[in-house]
Design a binder for these strands. Structure first.
Lengths: 214, 214
DNA sequence: TGTAATGTTTACCAATCGGTCAAATTATCT
DNA sequence: AGATAATTTGACCGATTGGTAAACATTACA
C-alpha cells in the first residue's frame, strides 16, 4: 500500500524528486496563465504527461501544488533585490538591479506571471510572505537607498516607490508581454526589445535619480 | 414568451439598462479578481443579487458578459492617453498623463485588474484590439514624443518604452495593491500613498527625460 | 530471486460548471 | 381591466471539477 505523501518522513526517492520536478514545471505552465482558480489538475496532468491521480499522489491537493510552487519560486525571485549591495556605488547597483530584473522577466516570464496572478487575486496564498520576509527585505534595502540620498549620492526620493517603479517597469515585459509585442509590432518583437528596454530604463533611472555620471 | 436578447432590435427597456448595468458591475467585481476562467456565472449572480438564469437572459453566455465588459471599459481606459496633447509642452503633458493614470489606478482598480488578468492569459479575448486601435493610438503618440526629442525638448529616448514605463509604474498601484500595502505597512497604506507615488513618479520622469524646468 | 514498499492507473464519487426550458411573475400599453 | 410582451425563477441537463478507492505495476533491497 502506498504511504500518503504527508506521512512520509524518510528521505525522498529518486523518482519522487524527478516527478515532483516535472509536476511543478507543468503546474508553473498552467498556474502562471490561468491563476489558481482558473487552473485545473487535469490541465496540469496533461502538460506533465501523467494521470491526475498520479499528480495527487505527489501533492495531495491542488492547493499543495500551488503552495510548493510559490515557495520554490519566491526565493529565487527575490534574488536580485537581495544582491543589491549597500557598499556598491549607486549607479552601478541600480543599473545592475534593473538589468537583472529584466533578465528575469525575459528568462522566467512564467514565474513573474505566477506572482502577478497571485497579486491580482489579493494574494490569498502569500499574504504572510509579503508582510514578513518581503517587507523586511524591502525595508532593509530602502534604508540603503535613503542613506545614499542623505549622502547626496542620489537625489532625494521615496525609496519604496523607487523600488516599486523598478519592479513594475521590468516585470511589465513578462506580465504584459502580449501587449508589448502587439504595440511594438512584429518587426520589433524580437528578443532585442529587452536590450532596448534595458537601455531606456537604465537611462531613465540614472538620470531620474540625479546620478551624476562622468 | 421572452424574446431572445440577441434577436431584439427595438430600443432597450429601462429595466434592461438597469439590470445590464448591475450585472456588468458585478461581473467587473468577479472577473477582475479571478480572471475569465476562474470566474463563475454563479459568483457574478450572487454579487448581482439575481438568479443565474436571469443573468443569462441579459447575456447569453459568460463570454458575452466578459466581452461587453471589456468593450465598455476599454474606451474609458485609453482616455488619458488620448488626451495626451501634441501641442502642449512636454513637461506638463507628461506630468498630467502620469497624474491621470495614477488617478485611474486609484479610482478604477478593478478595471485595471480586468485588463491585467486578460494580459496575463495572453489576451485571448482582446488581441485584435491590441493590434488594432491600441497600437494605432500608441503609434500616434509615440510620434509626438519622437518629435519632442528631435526638437530637443526632451532627451532622446525610445517613445514606446517610455509609454510602457508610465503604464507599468502607474497601474502597479492598482494591480499590485496588496503588495504595495504589505510593503508600505499599515501606517503608509492610506490614500496618501497615491500622492507620494505621484510626487516620486513625476520627478523620476521629468528628470529622467532631461526636461529642463525653470 | 522474493517480497515489501513505492509508484501508477482505471473506475468512480459528489459538487460545481455553463447553459436550457418551461412555468410563473411582473411590467406595459390600449 | 385585459391582453400582450418582458422579466424572473426553480428544476434540470450533460460536462467538468477536485479528489478517492482499490487494483495493478514497478522498484528497491535483503
Amino acid at each position: 500500500m502506498a504511504i500518503p505523501r504527508a506521512a512520509r518522513t524518510q528521505r525522498r526517492t529518486r523518482i519522487q524528486e524527478e516527478k515532483e520536478e516535472i509536476i511543478l514545471e507543468a503546474a508553473l505552465d498552467v498556474f502562471s496563465v490561468n491563476g489558481f482558480r482558473g487552473s485545473t489538475i487535469d490541465q496540469i496532468a496533461e502538460v506533465a504527461g501523467m494521470s491526475k491521480p498520479n499528480l495527487l499522489y505527489y501533492f495531495r491537493t491542488k492547493e499543495a501544488m500551488h503552495r510548493a510552487l510559490i515557495d520554490r519560486v519566491l526565493f529565487t525571485w527575490l534574488e536580485p533585490l537581495r544582491a543589491f549591495d549597500a557598499n556598491g556605488d549607486p549607479e552601478s547597483e541600480i543599473r545592475s538591479y534593473i538589468r537583472r530584473k529584466l533578465e528575469m522577466a525575459r528568462d522566467f516570464p512564467r514565474e513573474s506571471r505566477l506572482f502577478a496572478n497571485e497579486m491580482l487575486q489579493g494574494a490569498p496564498h502569500v499574504e504572510d510572505e509579503l508582510r514578513g520576509p518581503l517587507k523586511s527585505l524591502v525595508d532593509e534595502k530602502a534604508e540603503v537607498i535613503r542613506a545614499w540620498a542623505k549622502a547626496g549620492k542620489i537625489a532625494k526620493c521615496d525609496p519604496y516607490h523607487l523600488i516599486f517603479s523598478i519592479w513594475s517597469t521590468t516585470q511589465h515585459y513578462a506580465d504584459f508581454d502580449v501587449q508589448v509585442r502587439a504595440v511594438l509590432g512584429q518587426e520589433h518583437s524580437g528578443e532585442g526589445r529587452f536590450e532596448d528596454a534595458a537601455r531606456y530604463l537604465e537611462k531613465l533611472f540614472v538620470d531620474g535619480l540625479g546620478i551624476r555620471h562622468t
